[in-house]
């Protein structure tokens, strides 16, 4: 049985945007290594390319390539402030489906771990459509702009969460934030801060499973937040791109995530 959430941006506001705003600095301290596919995509761009990082979070992809110019955006002001420190790029607060940019004008876009936070197929396709609409169309022998879209996979039976094709695709995922305790032994704290160094890990850090290993749940000084996710099935991202008038150029699976590179149809 699927727990289909209500068709509403209020729902996303409560279960995505407000959560990120509150966990921003904690979330950011766990997000500093780029995923290989994203890094490869950004490094493959010609120098001087101009593009977008839509849902940039703390801006960890803004340090990959300084020879391109990226306008990064996120709904969270707190995350955007952190992202804005990466030169020579720019960061602003905006919504994926109402970005303040001219259509058909950018060489590239990345949207990493963003589309899966939208709670209906229509909204996910609308988001993909609005990302593709910002890319240059093919003309005068120059190919169209390209977007890399990256979403969490349902098929991740080897991950700590263990979901697989039989599970619900619409889930609320807990994020447990520990408040600083002054007398915490130093070695424990450093263990926490390095828990996330594996760049291929997706949503690790201090979540429920981890905590149960180090102590009783719901101990004081912890706060649990839930974020909504739609977990993508094999082939579903490509379908959404096609529905959004996109052309899939390449796609694949990278450690618990589906990704695709797409262009707008000419």
């Amino acid at each position: 049985m699927s727990t289909q959430p209500p068709d509403s941006s209020d729902y996303e506001s409560e279960h995505v945007h407000q959560v990120y705003e509150q966990i921003a600095s904690h979330f950011s301290s766990t997000r500093y290594k780029p995923w290989p596919i994203v890094e490869r995509f950004l490094l493959s761009l010609p120098d001087g390319s101009i593009g977008l990082d839509i849902g940039c979070g703390n801006g960890k992809y803004l340090s990959v390539n300084k020879n391109v110019y990226i306008l990064a955006s996120d709904r969270s002001t707190n995350l955007t402030k952190i992202a804005s420190t990466h030169q020579p790029h720019s960061a602003l607060v905006a919504d994926t489906i109402a970005l303040p940019h001219k259509p058909a004008s950018f060489d590239f876009a990345i949207s990493i771990a963003v589309v899966h936070h939208l709670s209906t197929p229509e909204r996910r396709r609308e988001a993909i459509h609005s990302i593709l609409a910002l890319l240059r169309r093919a003309e005068n022998g120059k190919e169209a702009g390209k977007a890399l879209i990256y979403v969490w996979a349902l098929e991740q039976k080897d991950s700590r969460r263990g979901w697989d094709s039989g599970n619900d695709q619409d889930v609320l995922v807990p994020w447990v934030m520990k408040e600083k305790r002054p007398k915490q032994p130093k070695k424990n704290r450093s263990k926490d801060s390095t828990a996330d160094e594996d760049p291929t890990k997706k949503d690790e850090n201090v979540d429920l499973e981890n905590n149960s290993a180090v102590g009783p749940k719901h101990q004081s000084g912890e706060k649990t937040f839930h974020r909504y996710y739609h977990l993508y099935r094999s082939g579903e991202l490509e379908q959404d791109i096609t529905h959004a008038d996109g052309l899939v150029l390449d796609s694949g699976y990278e450690k618990d995530n589906w990704w695709a590179i797409a262009s707008p149809k000419s």
Binding site: S84, L92, A94, P100
Partner: peptide, 18 residues
């Protein structure tokens, strides 16, 4: 009017304006 505060421009619109 889109506000800029602490160097960050905010382009979020109220739902009825999107």
């Amino acid at each position: 009017e889109y506000a800029i505060k602490e160097g960050i421009a905010n382009f979020l619109l109220p739902a009825h304006m999107v």
